[in-house]
C-alpha cells in the first residue's frame, strides 16, 4: 500500500470520508467539552419539569396556539386585502398598501404590540378591542404579520400566469369572479410554503405577548416558562417550553411538505 497513485474515484471517496470524520470530530469535541453533570442539573431536572404539567399544555401551549392562529387569520385577511390593493389599478390604494407594508415590516413586532396594547385604549377611551388580551394579541401581532403576508400573497398572485386570468375573462367571468375562482386558489397553492414559515414565525412571536400583561389563564409558553424558572430557580422550564414549541412547528413543516407534494402532482 505504499504510495499508491490515487484514481479519481478513490480520491473522491477519500475526500468524502474525510468530510464525515471532520464533522463527527467537531461534534464530539463540543459534546466532550461540555460539563454534562452541571448541564443536566440546570436544564434537565425532571421534578421541575414534572411540576409544569398539565398547565404547560392545557394553558400555556393552548394559548400559544390560539394566539398564533388568531394573529394568522387576522394577518392573512388584512394581508390579502393589502395584496389586492397593491395590485389595484386605483392609485391611492397602491399608495396606502405600499406605505402600510413598508411601515409595519420596518417596525419590531414588540413595538407594534405595545402600541396596540397601550396606544389604542388611549386613542379610543370609550372603546376597546373585543376579546381582551386575545383581541389585542390578534391585532398587535396580526398587523405586522399582515405586512409580510401581503408581500407573499402579492408575489403568489403575480406568479399565476397571465393567461389564467385571460382564459377566465374570456369565458365571461368578471374580474373579481376570475380572481376568486381561478387566480387566488392557484396563488395560495404557490404561497403555502412561505405562509407556513409565517405561521412558524408567528408562533415564536407569541412569546412577546407578555408585554400586554397576561394572567394565569391567558399565559403562553415563554412567559409560563419564565415564571416557573423564577419560582423554582432553575432553567429546566426553558427546555420544556422549547420542546413544546417544536411540538407545534415540526408538524407544520411536515404539513407543508405534504401540501407541496400534492400541489406538485396537480401542476
Amino acid at each position: 500500500m505504499t504510495s499508491v497513485k490515487l484514481t479519481p474515484r478513490r480520491r473522491r471517496r477519500l475526500v468524502r470520508v474525510a468530510g464525515y470524520i471532520v464533522f463527527a470530530a467537531a461534534i464530539l469535541a463540543v459534546v466532550a467539552a461540555a460539563d454534562w453533570g452541571r448541564l443536566s442539573d440546570a436544564f434537565f431536572r425532571s421534578d421541575v419539569a414534572a411540576s409544569m404539567f398539565p398547565e404547560a399544555i392545557t394553558i400555556a401551549l393552548r394559548n400559544t396556539i390560539v394566539y398564533t392562529l388568531l394573529a394568522f387569520v387576522f394577518g392573512l385577511t388584512v394581508g390579502l386585502g393589502l395584496a389586492l390593493m397593491r395590485l389595484s389599478s386605483i392609485l391611492p390604494y397602491r399608495w396606502f398598501a405600499t406605505a402600510y407594508i413598508e411601515l409595519f415590516r420596518g417596525l419590531p413586532a414588540l413595538l407594534v404590540l405595545f402600541m396596540v396594547g397601550y396606544g389604542v385604549p388611549l386613542a379610543f377611551p370609550d372603546r376597546e378591542i373585543p376579546g381582551g388580551v386575545y383581541g389585542s394579541v390578534t391585532v398587535g401581532l396580526g398587523l405586522t404579520a399582515a405586512a409580510y403576508m401581503a408581500e407573499t400573497l402579492r408575489a403568489g398572485i403575480q406568479a399565476v400566469p397571465k393567461g389564467q386570468l385571460e382564459a377566465a375573462r374570456t369565458l365571461g367571468m368578471s374580474h373579481p369572479r376570475a380572481m376568486v375562482s381561478i387566480v387566488l386558489p392557484q396563488a395560495f397553492r404557490i404561497v403555502i410554503p412561505p405562509l407556513t414559515n409565517e405561521i412558524i414565525l408567528l408562533t415564536k412571536d407569541t412569546s412577546l405577548v407578555y408585554v400586554l400583561g397576561v394572567t394565569t389563564t391567558t399565559i403562553e409558553l415563554t412567559k409560563f416558562a419564565g415564571d416557573t424558572l423564577n419560582t423554582r430557580v432553575n432553567p429546566t422550564p426553558l427546555v420544556v417550553a422549547g420542546l413544546l414549541y417544536l411540538v407545534i412547528t415540526l408538524p407544520l413543516s411536515q404539513l407543508v411538505r405534504g401540501l407541496e407534494r400534492r400541489a406538485g402532482r396537480e401542476k
Binding site: Q164, E166, A167, T170, L171, I182, P185, E266
Partner: peptide
C-alpha cells in the same frame, strides 16, 4: 364585455387550462 365574451369562445396557444 362579459356578456359579449360569453358568446365568443377563445382558444390560446398555451392552452391556459386551470391547473388547480
Amino acid at each position: 364585455i362579459d356578456a359579449v365574451r360569453r358568446g365568443v369562445g377563445m382558444v390560446f396557444q398555451q392552452f391556459n387550462l386551470f391547473g388547480h
